[in-house]
Amino acid sequence: MRFLDTPFRQALAVLVVAYVLIDFGIPYIPPLFGVDSAPVPNTVVLQYLLTVLAGLLLWVSDNDERWTEFKRPIQEVLVRPDKRVGRAVLLVAVPVLVAFVTWGRVKPEVTAPPSFRSIHPAPPRSITFQGETMQLAGLENPLRSEGSLEAHNEVGKRVYYQNCLPCHGDALDGLGHYAHGFNPAPLNFQDVGTIAQLTESFVFWRVAKGGPGLPREGTPWNSAMPAWENLLTADEIWSVILFLYEQTGNDPRTWEEAGAEEGEH
């Protein structure tokens, strides 16, 4: 590793490795747990890289020797006569890079700009469902303990395909026909970060109340999910929830070891 014998090159190498790890490595982590991979948003990549860069600057400068060593190649390129070519390349490349980045940021695009969303909503302790108060805390799917699971599952399947399909998709992956039109996008149930993280009562709350039922803390956003309590019965919702878990192979969080604090979307 002769190449890595100066602090400057080491720092550069760490930065490159960090970038590769963050931008390409992190997407490989979810599959280890059997979840679909997902890219890291650019804003987060930038934030992480800036943190790493700050750390690197601290490292190269917390010791006098290293700091001098680190600065030497930079100084050399800037002043030494025999590095004229490198200097010229640098003097052209840096402005071009800056210009390119700036252009990339201001060029007209068809996609909407990144949207901010506030903190995830916390579920209420109880809701009113079609006129009855339901305690969400500790609530289990009642269909799991009565009747045949298969029958419920069939009902759930029917309900899903009649109502949920257009947005949440044939594969329950949030890629239905209309999905690309919505922001926030419909939930991908296959993702381990969604229903697998939630209790069934939380899912029930979100299905029953939909976008309009989001608490004010969840703003600003504009989920297009309808409030299904107006269209479905409680049993239909419970059975479609059953179907979601059965079909994706996920297990709901149970109350003994799970918190329903994390939100959806």
């Binding site: 890219p39 948003p41 650019n42 987060v44 996609t111 909407a112 990144p114 926030p184 996008a185 959806e264």
Partner: peptide
């Protein structure tokens, strides 16, 4: 904070 494409790629 993510763009539309990123959100759909992340599934939320």
């Amino acid at each position: 904070i993510a763009s539309r494409d990123e959100i759909s790629a992340m599934g939320g």
